[in-house]
Design a protein around this nucleic acid. Structure first.
Lengths: 128, 128
DNA sequence: GTCGAATATTCGCTTGACAGCATATTCGAT
DNA sequence: ATCGAATATGCTGTCAAGCGAATATTCGAC
């Protein structure tokens, strides 16, 4: 059943953390990896699971993969992203990630070259 | 994370089928088992998982265990039960189960003794 | 107390999910 | 062509989930 795959997206802490971060806006894989503080292959695999479950859209841009929530989410996804929003206050780990995200984004905007080559600087602004 | 356990309830076909049936009203374990057509221990185990995830309340009545959706469901549960309702049309297996339920309930009401001893006949009506 | 029915639990097994580590791939820059 | 950075994929081990079969438990009836 297709619906089971969709629910798998919400049955793993890393995936929930990724969704929580993407609720604030798109991020590329390397920034996700850095914010989450977990090995890059792990992030990549969970992203694939999210994509397979219809909870993620990715766009390749040179060597960067931009991750964002689907432009037209399914009703199921939409309902549960809303739940996730409401649960932020209760889950300390979600709040910490959001603060880490804020710091990371600030650093990127201050000194884009540290993180991104010139070609995708504008994209970075789009991201953050 | 507590929330993961809650989502586990929706990540298994048998559990989804049980929730789908209970949306119509309470059922005891033996009727659930009969409607689903799966071994009783399997049903029992999934019921435990649903209970642990906060998606099920059970009430012991003599030797019967009456299963029902929580009287005051969490927002997460409520949202996803609503999704389940909407998905019924798309999942043939859900529709088949509902028809089987209808036939089973009709049989119980016609000849309660076949299924339930006198003491819980009224409860059966409550169930169905 | 003994029996049968309804339900729960234990056991051994198989399968699948996730992890870490190493490696492959893909791109622009030089 | 070669290099480094970003990302994806193989591989292998570990662990939890789920299953079937058998058994334990709990109740009322007799």
């Amino acid at each position: 059943m297709q619906i089971i795959q969709a629910y798998q997206c919400f049955c793993d802490e890393t995936r929930l953390r990724i969704l929580n971060l993407l609720l604030e806006g798109p991020l590329c894989v390397c920034h996700l990896t850095s914010i989450l503080g977990v090995p890059q292959p792990k992030v990549s695999r969970h992203l694939k699971a999210l994509r397979d479950g219809g909870a993620l859209e990715t766009e390749r841009c040179y060597n960067w993969t931009i991750c964002r929530l689907p432009a037209t989410p399914s009703p199921l996804l939409e309902a549960n992203l809303k739940c996730l929003q409401d649960l932020r206050a209760e889950e300390p780990c979600f709040k910490v990630d959001l603060e880490t995200r804020k710091r990371t984004v600030a650093r990127i905007l201050r000194d884009p070259c540290d993180d991104l080559p010139a070609q995708i600087r504008s994209l970075a602004k789009d991201c953050c």
